Simulated scan of single mutants.
Amino acid sequence: MDTKSHKIAGVGVLVALAMVLSYLESLIPISLGIPGIKLGLSNVVTLFALYQFGGGIAFGVAVCRIVLCGVTFGSLSTMLYSFAGGLLSFAVMFVLKKTEKFSIYGISIAGGVMHNVGQLLVAAYVMQTAKIIYYMPVLLIAGTLAGAAIGILGAMIYRRIDT
């Protein structure tokens, strides 16, 4: 098998893994009493792909996961929120990684925070109110904690698999 075939197979495995993690997380009945807050376990795959394969493949994995999970497990509405959060998160993580001034942990935290910011901006637009922005401090804390957890997990995986 040539290198291109290996890369395509690897991307397929990453997309499938992200979908499985997303689905498994949806089955976990954790309710913190705050709507919309979750760990975002599938984001560890995007973070890993960004470090292992670069921005293009990581972007493709993120978009494929959002579309496939939205079509399979969600709705057009959930896909809209996922795209807003996922694409803003990815863009910030990509730019921060390019600067080479941030660790994988800092990049993941920024991604977690920006994911929530993107979703909150869409919610403000959909609901036609800026009052939802009052929810921002809670989401910033949640994004920071989730991003830190994903960063720790992503760093552990990357160190063990990096070739």
Rank of each mutant, 00 (worst) to 15 (best):
V63R: 00
V13G: 12
G10W: 11
I37T: 09
V71L: 10
L17E: 11
R65V: 00
V44S: 09
T78W: 03
T78L: 05
G55R: 03
T46Q: 04
V44T: 08
L76G: 08
M79S: 03
S42Y: 06
M79D: 00
S26I: 02
I37N: 07
F73Y: 13
K38D: 05
A9P: 02
V15L: 05
F59R: 07
A62P: 01
L39I: 09
Y23G: 10
G10Y: 12
F48S: 02
L41N: 06
G54N: 03
A62R: 12
V45H: 01
V67I: 14
S26R: 11
S26N: 12
T78S: 07
I30W: 12
A18P: 14
G70I: 14
N43T: 06
F48P: 01
V44Y: 06
L21E: 01
P29N: 11
G56R: 05
V11M: 15
L39V: 07
V45A: 03
T46V: 03
F73E: 02
G12V: 10
Y51S: 02
L14Y: 13
G74D: 06
Q52V: 01
L14M: 15
S22I: 00
L21H: 15
I34L: 09
L47R: 08
S31T: 07
Y51G: 04
I57F: 05
V44M: 09
C69P: 00
G70S: 09
V20R: 13
A58F: 04
N43R: 09
S22P: 02
G12K: 14
L27E: 10
L14N: 14
R65D: 00
A58H: 00
F73W: 12
I66G: 00
M19T: 14
V71D: 12
C69I: 11
M19H: 12
V61W: 01
I28G: 09
S42M: 04
L27D: 07
S77A: 08
F53Q: 06
V67E: 01
F73K: 04
V61R: 09
F48T: 01
V71K: 11
M19V: 15
T46P: 02
L41K: 08
G36H: 08
G56Q: 04
L47D: 02
I66A: 00
V20G: 12
G74S: 06
M79Q: 02
G70N: 11
V20D: 08
G12H: 14
G60R: 03
I34W: 05
L14Q: 13
G55C: 02
K38N: 08
L21T: 07
A16C: 15
V63L: 12
P35V: 11
A62V: 04
A9L: 15
G36K: 08
S26T: 10
C69K: 13
I57H: 05
